[in-house]
């Protein structure tokens, strides 16, 4: 069961963390805007790169990224994050208007992927993209929250409370734990 990527948005609607494990093969008709046909598997937004994970299944050609290509794909990543946030935020608001305050938006599925959404009462939002056939990942997201986020980010006295620009989230323990956890599912 493939996990494609994972995003965390904070209560100020900013994307404070994103990570991809696997980029789904684009259908022949659509093409991505960056010159290389795929992002390098383990790319992280450049200023925050600490450790780079080794790519698992690589059915895609990985072109050596030039500086411009890196910048473009970073931009694309940011845009992706914004798009995703916009989508889930609107869907969540719509769900609340139609189903009452207690109703929650859980997931949506397209032909290419399934997006699972999880929101905590503190307005921290997780979005996980997996293959379309995946079962409910709500429990997975809950576990990520309890065992990784709270343990390694909240309880770390050295990480700030507000994670402007992702500060404090990219600590080693959180990343390692998250990586291990997700790979354990794949």
């Amino acid at each position: 069961m493939q996990v494609y990527s994972f995003y965390i948005f904070d209560r100020h609607t900013e994307c404070i963390y994103s990570k991809s494990w696997f980029t789904p093969p684009p259908p022949a008709s659509s093409s991505l805007t960056s010159p290389s046909t795929s992002r390098p598997q383990s790319q992280q937004p450049a200023p925050h790169a600490s450790s780079v994970t080794s790519p698992p299944v690589a059915s895609l050609v990985v072109a050596p990224p030039s500086a411009a290509a890196l910048k473009r794909s970073k931009q694309k990543k940011d845009d992706d994050a914004k798009l995703i946030f916009g989508t889930v935020f609107s869907l969540r608001n719509m769900v609340r208007k139609l189903g009452g305050e207690d109703d929650a938006f859980i997931a949506y599925r397209t032909g290419q992927y399934k997006l699972h959404y999880y929101e905590t009462p503190t307005n921290l939002r997780f979005a996980l993209l997996t293959e379309p056939g995946a079962l409910s990942m709500r429990n997975v997201l809950h576990q990520i929250y309890i065992n990784l986020w709270v343990e390694y980010v909240v309880k770390n006295p050295l990480s700030p409370v507000e994670h402007k620009g992702g500060e404090g989230v990219r600590n080693e323990m959180f990343e390692m734990g998250l990586d291990k956890f997700i790979r354990g599912l794949m």
Binding site: D102, A104, T120, P121, T122, L124, H142, Y145, I146, W149, V150, V154, K155, V161
Partner: peptide, 15 residues
């Protein structure tokens, strides 16, 4: 500010 997330995680309340 930090304790609330710890509380939510421990008490497993998601609403």
């Amino acid at each position: 500010l930090r304790l609330i997330e710890d509380y939510l995680a421990k008490s497993n309340t998601m609403r």
